Amino acid sequence: MRRNRVIAGTAAVLLGATGLWAASLATGGGDTPGPGPQPTTTVAAPPQGATRGPDIRIAAVGDMNGPGTRDPKSASGRNGAAIARLVRTNQIDAFMGLGDFQYDTARCADYVKYWTPLWGGTKSKLYWVSAPNHDWQPGRNEDLDNFMNGQCKGAPAKAAINQLRGFIGNGQPYSKDFGTWHFAFLSSAYWRYDPARARQLTVWLDRDLAAARAKGRHLAVVYHEPYFTSNTSEHGRAADHKPWIDVMYKHRVRLTLSGSQHNYERSCPVNNRDKCVRDGMTAFQVSTGGIGLRSFTSKPSYIAKRFSDTHGFLRLTLHGNGSFDWKFVPTSGKSTDAGKRPAP
């Protein structure tokens, strides 16, 4: 199997300078990222330039398919079929895959045998991030990037972003404009496997969001392990992500998408100090793709809506003026959530 990077033992943890240079060039960045910026609450200037554009229709979910799961009537199968139907009938412009695609430690054969029969119909509009452990653990399971680039035998289809950009390594950041909206995609796996590199990527994120905001784009960030979240018996908040959160609030990111917790949460518009504020981020945590659900063990004040009894996925309609609508679509269970955030 051909890879577009060199892996040597524990060096597999890093994409290395090549991947970071490529990501920086793809989004107009400059030199290879260095140490991350200090936390700040500086008020960013309001967006200039284009404020009108087409509506962008998105589906999003993570934590999708359990080990050996192929049953179309399973929670995973129902979600995969529902989103694939939206893709097939052109009712969405993008499917945001929020990580943990196939459990438990998937390789090519697992993606082909299990994920593809249930979720393969989503791939033509799929934009993805790799999560630690289940998607990508250096030296253990490193095939997600090959699968998304159509390099796994028996699954030649490429994800939407790979059709546009070619091979993207598991930890390589990238960004993409959708109408007047700009999305940055980050692999939170770096915080587990190479925190120094994760902190360096803060510089990439800062430059990427600054350039997009200067063009009048409304900002969103996709990453797997949530910062704004309730605890469960397995996970708490990803506190080490704070440098990324500081940069997101500095540039007044409008929304974030993450997974990991095996339930659903939505925050108030929240700042980098856990306060509900008018110009904060609406953080969606959508890990209801099909894996077993987990109950909550804490309730932060910034969480506006949550439930842990229903599988389904999030639909977003992003408007050109920065406002957006959301609706959680239940596929196994009855809980839901819907609302609208006005333009900034």
Rank of each mutant, 00 (worst) to 15 (best):
W181P: 05
F183C: 02
S187G: 04
A189W: 05
Y190H: 07
Y190F: 13
W191C: 04
Y193V: 15
D194Y: 13
P195S: 08
A196I: 14
R197H: 06
A198N: 14
Q200E: 15
L201Y: 11
L201V: 12
T202M: 09
T202V: 14
V203R: 15
W204C: 12
D208T: 15
A210I: 03
A212V: 09
R213W: 01
R213L: 03
A214G: 13
A214Y: 00
K215N: 01
R217S: 08
H218C: 00
L219W: 00
L219A: 01
V221R: 00
V222S: 02
Y223V: 01
Y223I: 01
E225A: 01
P226G: 03
S230P: 04
T232L: 08
H235N: 15
H235I: 06
R237F: 02
R237W: 03
R237L: 05
A238Y: 06
D240M: 11
H241K: 10
H241V: 08
K242I: 14
K242R: 15
P243A: 08
P243E: 06
P243Q: 06
I245R: 06
I245Y: 00
D246T: 12
D246W: 05
V247R: 07
V247S: 09
Y249E: 06
R252G: 01
R254Q: 10
L255K: 03
S258N: 07
S258C: 07
G259E: 04
G259Y: 01
G259N: 03
S260W: 04
S260L: 04
S260D: 14
Q261I: 12
Q261E: 09
N263A: 03
Y264S: 07
E265A: 04
R266H: 03
S267R: 03
C268W: 05
P269K: 05
V270H: 00
V270R: 00
N271K: 02
N271D: 13
R273G: 02
D274C: 02
C276F: 04
C276L: 06
V277K: 00
V277R: 00
V277Y: 05
R278W: 04
R278N: 04
D279P: 01
D279G: 05
G280T: 07
T282N: 10
T282W: 07
A283Y: 08
A283F: 08
A283M: 10
Q285G: 10
Q285L: 14
Q285I: 15
V286H: 05
S287E: 08
T288K: 04
I291Y: 08
R294H: 15
R294F: 12
S295T: 15
F296D: 09
S298H: 10
K299C: 05
P300T: 11
A304W: 06
R306M: 12
R306L: 09
R306I: 09
F307I: 12
S308Y: 15
S308A: 15
S308K: 08
G312D: 11
F313V: 14
L314C: 11
L314P: 15
